[in-house]
Computed example of a mutant assay.
Amino acid sequence: MTAEWRPVRQSRTHELVLERIEERVLAGELKAGDRLPPERELAPVLGVSRSALREALRVLETIGVLVAQPGRGPDAGARIVRNPDDALGRLLRLHFALGSYRLHDVLEARVVLERSSFEAAAEHASAQDLDEAEALLDRMREPGVGAADFNDLDTRFHVAIARSSGNQLTSTLTSAVRESVRPLILRALETAEDWPATAAALNAEHTELLRLVRAGKGAEAADLAEVHIRGFHGRLVDENAPTEQEQEREREQEEEGRAGADR
């Protein structure tokens, strides 16, 4: 197997290692479940140092396409996997925190994705899928549930509906977008003036959403999903809207960034 690997150029070594591995994935020569050769074998045939190889493997772990198991034995080493949900959620959360995306942009993305999810779930979701969503709602309705647990269950409910839609990409994107604003939504829940009333109102909408999906009323479920998201999430957008001075500063920074890129 190692004889099939070709050496890489030495400039930007770890990036070139990534390119080589990506080539093999795109060519179908590496698939989920396949193991990479041990570092001591792979580094020489690629013509790179083991430290450069490890750097490339760490990047692949971060983006959710590889898991490395240290030690010896049949389970040791690096293995190709498919785990995009956590990786995309982490990536979007960091970029949102850095200001790469506005809260309004995240809101609109959620609306588009979840309208699609709820409408498709009304047509494709199995009884087992919907029973699992119902179980999450039962836990959200429990007396005394705190904001942190509620936020976790809320996220899982929306992701469960997306998964039941039959579109894995929509499910992954829904999970990533919802995860990106999880800390902000949690802070809003924790600072709600009347937490029991807030939880009850959100649960009432969740309950109706699930009822519509069970009844196969996809268009109505999609409309209510948008109202639901624009309600609570929309208030976050209004509360966190930048001032005119902040908007002007953002425009100046964008112009400086474009000017730097042109140079």
Rank of each mutant, 00 (worst) to 15 (best):
D262K: 01
E254G: 04
R251L: 15
S11C: 06
R24D: 01
R50A: 15
Y101W: 13
A176F: 04
L236D: 03
L53C: 01
G89N: 08
T13D: 03
L173D: 01
A122C: 09
G47K: 00
G234I: 05
A162W: 03
H233L: 08
E123W: 08
A56N: 06
L18E: 07
R187W: 07
A122H: 08
A133M: 07
G144Q: 09
L202M: 15
D262G: 03
E61G: 05
L66W: 03
E19A: 09
N83V: 01
N203E: 09
L103H: 03
S165Q: 04
H228E: 06
L98W: 05
T174K: 00
H14K: 09
L88D: 00
E254F: 11
A215C: 04
A201L: 11
A87M: 05
S116K: 07
D138K: 15
R156C: 02
V112I: 14
R93W: 12
R251M: 11
A125T: 10
F150N: 09
A199G: 05
E246S: 12
A76F: 07
A125D: 06
S11F: 11
R182N: 04
R90H: 14
R258K: 14
L42R: 00
H124Q: 15
D105H: 09
G146R: 12
A201W: 10
Q168K: 13
V227H: 13
A221V: 08
G73P: 08
M140H: 05
G231E: 10
P44A: 12
D262P: 00
P183F: 08
D131N: 06
E114P: 03
A147E: 10
R20E: 15
G33F: 06
G231S: 13
V181N: 00
A241T: 13
Q69M: 13
A176R: 04
S126M: 11
E19V: 14
R58K: 14
D129Q: 03
D129K: 07
A121F: 09
